[in-house]
Amino acid sequence: MGDPSSVATFQIGGLTFNTANVISGLIAFVLVFLFVFALSRHLTMKPGRGQNVIEWLIDFTNGILKGSIPGNETGAFGLYGFTLFLFLFVSNQLGLFIQIAVGGKDFVRSPTSDPIVTMTFSLATLMLAQFAGVSKLGWKKHFSGYLKPFVFWLPISIFEEFTNFLTLGLRIFGVIYSGEMLLKIIGGMAFSHGIATFIVAIPLEMLWQGFSAFLGAIQAFVFVTLSSVYISRKLEVE
């Protein structure tokens, strides 16, 4: 994977679609929806098991947002943070358990192991941050923030936005991509020299899978945390 030739693409209306991304993205979306849907049935005043889990999740993502966004403005971004966290988490874990390749071309893997996906989300976050800044402070005040502490700071401010966009997207991509890559390498090693390498590779694979699962959770958390930080920075006058 990673090699452009290892993914199938198709085109609709002049737009290039990556088959692997579309399929695994759909799987992740459906999984998240089913998970939340299953947990949020039979809501009662006295929470049952599923309700406890979803309430804990909501509290968890709200807690991340409250950590950096001041005051009561968390409410507006709560749903975004919640959905983002769940989707990134499921996406990160997806490739650890299911990877389907047909005829040398990937069809199911972690959607987040493609930079175009993570960049989409980081772009969404930064656009949301700009939008929030404008809607809270107004156009003039928001964009005059780029001229602080003095006018000639403008290029650096713009460059900072760009690096935020890049680092936010590339961090999660790097971790998930490398994790899957190593899983594939260990998997390839397992089948390379018969039973001996197979036995050696199994504990290694398990170990790395566990570590990747941990990393995937951490990366989802970090992504949401940084998103809230970027948003909160646009909400306050410096």
Binding site: T9, Q11, I12, L15, T16, F17, N18, N21, V22, G25, L26, F29, V32, F33, V36, F37, L39, S40, I54, I58, G78, L79, Y80, F82, T83, L86, F87, P111, D114, I116, V117, M119, T120, F121, L123, A124
Partner: peptide
Amino acid sequence: LDTGDMLFYALCFILLMWLLKVVAW
């Protein structure tokens, strides 16, 4: 640049957000 993917993910994400809002949030 698989621009289609970006569009696909953006739309799906918005749809998912809306669904989660209705169903759970």
